[in-house]
């Protein structure tokens, strides 16, 4: 077998797929706290620890998955799998990320139908939420620094923040930001 340096041998490819499966199974089991926390944890694994993607590339994936409907963090997982391992990686990442939750939920659903109520988790959730806030902030800080590339983008970010607090829908804010930036660029060039 002759391979130019840098190209992936089938063996590399296979170990890539295994890495993808391992990572997203792990995330599927340990990623508590909703989409924002999942994205924070994925950034730590994929950008900081494994360096599969650059910070900018990861940021682009966040933006892009926000533009399409559907659960953002699951789509991030699928997307990262695709970047790393092609269509096989896409399927494996998505499947591994979703499966643990589905199995746990399935068991709870079965218990619920037998007992008619949920287990008491309140005492455990109590301390999880404040920790999740810290996890999200720690991931969002470098991403925010990366995303605000100009004064204009900084202003757009602040306006988005205000609109979101005022209760505008996410779709309006996301597409509004994009078109506002285009309009701004057009005004500057005119």
């Amino acid at each position: 077998m002759h391979n130019t340096p840098g190209s992936l041998t089938p063996k590399d490819h296979k170990s890539n797929l295994k890495d993808i499966a391992r990572l997203f199974l792990k995330l599927g089991i340990t990623a508590f706290g909703g989409p924002a926390a999942h994205i924070a944890m994925m950034r730590h694994e994929v950008v900081v620890k494994r360096q599969w993607l650059s910070e900018q590339h990861f940021l682009d994936l966040i933006g892009a998955t926000n533009l399409i409907p559907g659960p953002n963090s699951t789509e991030m997982a699928i997307h990262i799998g695709q970047e790393r391992g092609g269509w096989r990686g896409l399927l494996i990442a998505g499947f591994c990320f979703i499966m643990p939750a589905v199995i746990i939920t399935g068991c709870l659903a079965w218990l619920y139908r037998s007992y008619g109520q949920l287990p008491q988790v309140q005492p455990f959730v109590y301390g999880i939420k404040p920790a999740i806030i810290a996890v999200i902030l720690a991931a969002i800080y470098p991403l925010a620094k990366k995303s605000i590339q100009s004064v204009e983008l900084g202003i757009i970010g602040i306006v988005c923040l205000v609109l979101c607090f005022l209760g505008y829908s996410e779709v309006v804010i996301l597409f509004g930001a994009g078109f506002a930036a285009l309009g701004w660029a057009w005004l500057l060039s005119a």
Binding site: I62, P130, C160, A177
Partner: peptide
């Protein structure tokens, strides 16, 4: 053009996550 668009969407996405953080804090 698309890069301009996506850069702004990225900033907006970060803003949305920050708001989620605020809501989590308010609740917990």
């Amino acid at each position: 053009l698309f890069t301009t668009f996506l850069n702004a969407v990225n900033v907006a996405s970060i803003a949305l996550i920050l708001v989620v953080c605020y809501q989590l804090g308010r609740d917990s």
